[in-house]
């Protein structure tokens, strides 16, 4: 599978890395839609996430949104600096704005996600 981002309909992205882990974040579209971000809650390293279920929360000035896991797996690292530097999500949502990294249970789950072209259509781009 090529090393490119895949997207959930709930606007999280997932990227398969060379070591077999999957990095997860939220799309630039989602960041823009949420506007002024004020708080983020992340899962603990070692916890498990399930595809389609909430693994964290993010708060903007007037709304709280769940973060949904695009793939099931064990959390092997979190971007611990992100909650105190939420502007990173605005500036670089696909690199330094990553949220968690998981060891996937079944990497094939990525195939069920949108590729870039399909996601662009989803958001009307």
């Amino acid at each position: 599978m090529e090393k490119s981002r895949r997207y959930a309909k709930s606007h999280e992205w997932a990227r398969l890395e060379d070591d077999g882990s999957v990095t997860i974040g939220i799309s630039a579209y989602a960041v823009e839609a949420l506007t002024d971000l004020v708080f983020m809650q992340l899962p603990d390293v070692g916890s498990t996430v399930t595809a389609g279920e909430s693994f964290g929360e993010i708060e903007s000035v007037k709304a709280v949104s769940d973060l949904y896991a695009p793939i099931s797996g064990k959390v092997i690292s979190v971007n611990a600096e992100l909650p105190s530097q939420l502007e990173t999500l605005n500036n670089d949502p696909y690199d330094s704005g990553w949220i968690i990294s998981v060891q996937p249970v079944a990497v094939e789950q990525l195939d069920a996600l949108f590729d870039q072209e399909a996601y662009d259509k989803l958001i009307g781009g």
Partner: peptide
């Protein structure tokens, strides 16, 4: 995230 589903 709980953002709109444009294609629904």
């Amino acid at each position: 995230m709980g953002l709109p589903r444009h294609t629904f």
